[in-house]
């Protein structure tokens, strides 16, 4: 179906940018220009070029100062999705609220605001953390990556592509946090980091390949109420192992014993 897609362009024209604004603000008429089953990467490229532009623009603006008296205002300089930000914020403002309400990065979601659901997961200096339990003030000198910054360059991150392929979401509200968390998980596996279900704490390895059980445990900080867990595991497994799998396959093989419950 590639002939249904526009030619990729290095720079978006004003018209295309407008079109994409519409795409991003609504599932309106313009989506047809970009959507296809088999070419999410192509679509991603266009959307992401646009996002990069928008993000760059946002970076030039100093976020609004909230007049609370000098005592409570905190100046913070940090990087968000590779753009330098200098903001003055209410000391109470969490990173989550700063992203959403000040920096127009609404991809990061507020599911519980208390560190109990994982919807607000972002990466801080390459590690997954919860933005709802992080004060913006604590971000001085840090580098934050949100879902909007996951796909650098002109293609989607493989994790994003895999989530689409394996239908790793339904409502999509927990998805930004799931994807950021999954990317963090991959880093942790590459560092040979452990989880509670790891068999032997003493055995060290530079990098480890995770079983499904390990993926499940390591993703347990991200609740999904729609119940996409098996699809999320399938998406992560595919990216983590590099082995493509059929999203519709009946998984259980009667010739094998059941998987290993560990807890």
């Amino acid at each position: 179906m590639s002939d249904n897609f526009p030619e990729l362009v290095d720079e978006l024209t004003a018209d295309e940018a407008e079109l994409l604004e519409e795409v991003l603000s609504d599932l309106g008429e313009s989506r047809r220009k970009f959507i296809g089953q088999s070419s999410t990467a192509v679509l991603g490229a266009v959307v992401l070029q646009f996002l990069a532009k928008r993000t760059a623009l946002a970076g030039e603006e100093m976020a609004e100062f909230v007049p609370l008296g000098d005592e409570q205002a905190v100046k913070v300089s940090f990087r968000v999705n590779d753009a330098a930000k200098s903001v003055s914020v209410d000391s109470r403002m969490t990173l989550l609220d700063a992203l959403r309400e000040k920096l127009a990065l609404t991809g990061t979601k507020k599911g519980c605001d208390h560190g109990q659901c994982g919807a607000c997961t972002v990466m801080m200096d390459g590690r997954r953390v919860l933005s709802c339990l992080t004060l913006t003030a604590q971000c001085e000198g840090r580098s934050v990556t949100t879902i909007e910054g996951v796909a650098k360059g002109d293609v989607l991150h493989p994790m994003q592509t895999a989530f689409i392929k394996h239908d790793g979401f339904q409502c999509g509200f927990c998805t930004p946090g799931q994807i950021c968390s999954a990317i963090g998980l991959m880093h942790e596996a590459r560092n040979g980091e452990l989880s509670y279900v790891s068999k032997d704490m003493r055995k060290t390895a530079a990098s480890i390949t995770l079983s499904d059980e390990e993926i499940r445990e390591r993703m347990s900080g991200n609740l999904c109420r729609c119940g996409a867990y098996p699809n999320i595991v399938a998406a992560i497994r595919e990216v983590h192992t590099g082995k493509a799998t059929d999203p519709m396959a009946v998984i259980f093989d009667m010739s094998k014993e059941g998987s290993d419950a560990t807890v």
């Binding site: 953390v129 919860l130 980091e193 452990l194 704490m201 347990s220 900080g221 991200n222």
Partner: peptide, 27 residues
Amino acid sequence: NHALIRRNFPMLSQAILAGASAQIRNM
């Protein structure tokens, strides 16, 4: 995940990893 802890006190690694979530343990 520190080598000194894993080698000498693997039970401490386990206990820490039993708590909360990966994100929270990173913070």
